[in-house]
Nucleic acid binder design. Structure first.
Length: 262
DNA sequence: AACTCCGGCAACCGCTGTCCA
DNA sequence: ATGGACAGCGGTTGCCGGAGT
């Protein structure tokens, strides 16, 4: 039996998305809403697999996405939820409006996991690492803000360093919070913002409702509405050939449609 | 300045779950 | 009940940039 591939891989572009492709996808979804992903590439004029479009949208282009590093509170929540849910990133992400499962997964694998290991916690089980016993006995982990007792708790709350690192020297950018706050600053003059604001899109259209379906039962962090004046997500798209500004996401591989760099 | 190494993250892959005819 | 189509999920890969030498 077997399933058909989600798309014909012949003639389907792969790899990093170009600004032009992003623009096409955004404008298509803004105009038509999210419909059948399989049809999106064709209708939007993209040589991409529908799955790729969905991923690009949900992980990067969605207006309600927060950008930047997770805050200490969010990180705390991720650890707590992971202790209860395990690697169910989508469930965890549902509790963090504006964050994607991919983002949380990456953050877990790159920051939190290492942090917990350094703190003597097994990231998989949330139990103290066997080797950490010796560590704690020698006092080398005495500066850790987590105790063995708290680690044993199922409802554990790790007191992660608010600056994003544990006190044992995990290298964490000191400007992470600063960066985070930068990312939430207003950029009302953004060319793409203007473009979107100028677009005649009814404010009560269903497509505007991007907030997480699970937001209702979440008290605390509330994701910004895309049109409440917070246009953070647009920060990354200031170079859609819609202006002269060149604020592209750090590390982004923005290319022309022929593959050459901008 | 040139090179190597490594961390971070976007994107891909393959599988599962759900819906519907 | 069955199977196809699609969305979603979690694990993994590979590229790029920055740090280190």
């Amino acid at each position: 039996m077997g399933r058909q591939p989600c798309c014909d891989k012949k003639g389907v572009k792969r790899g990093p998305w170009t600004a032009e492709e992003d623009k096409k996808l955004i404008s298509f979804i803004l105009m038509h809403g999210r419909c059948c992903w399989r049809a999106v590439p064709k209708l939007a004029g993209l040589l991409r697999c529908g799955k790729s479009c969905r991923l690009r949208w949900t992980n990067y282009l969605r207006p309600d996405l927060k950008r930047g590093l997770l805050t200490a509170e969010e990180e705390q929540l991720v650890v707590d939820l992971h202790s209860k849910l395990g690697n169910r990133w989508s469930k965890i992400a549902a509790k963090l409006p504006g964050r994607t499962d991919n983002e949380i997964k990456n953050h877990w694998n790159t920051y939190i996991k290492k942090k917990l290991i350094k703190m003597g916690i097994d990231p998989a089980t949330h139990q103290p690492l066997a080797s950490s016993k010796d560590d704690s006995q020698t006092g080398t982990s005495s500066q850790s803000t987590i105790t063995t007792e708290s680690a044993k708790s199922n409802d554990m709350t790790y007191l992660l360093d608010p600056k994003g690192g544990c006190s044992r020297g995990m290298p964490v950018p000191t400007d992470s919070l600063e960066q985070s706050s930068r990312n939430t600053s207003s950029h009302s003059l953004d060319p793409l913002v203007n473009w979107l604001l100028e677009a005649e899109l009814p404010a009560d259209d269903p497509w505007l409702n991007f907030s997480s379906s699970n937001d209702d039962d979440f008290i605390g962090i509330v994701g910004p509405s895309p049109w409440d004046g917070t246009t953070d997500w647009l920060l990354d798209y200031q170079d859609f050939n819609m202006g002269n500004s060149s604020l592209i996401r750090p590390g982004a591989r923005i290319q022309n449609s022929d593959g050459s760099d901008f």
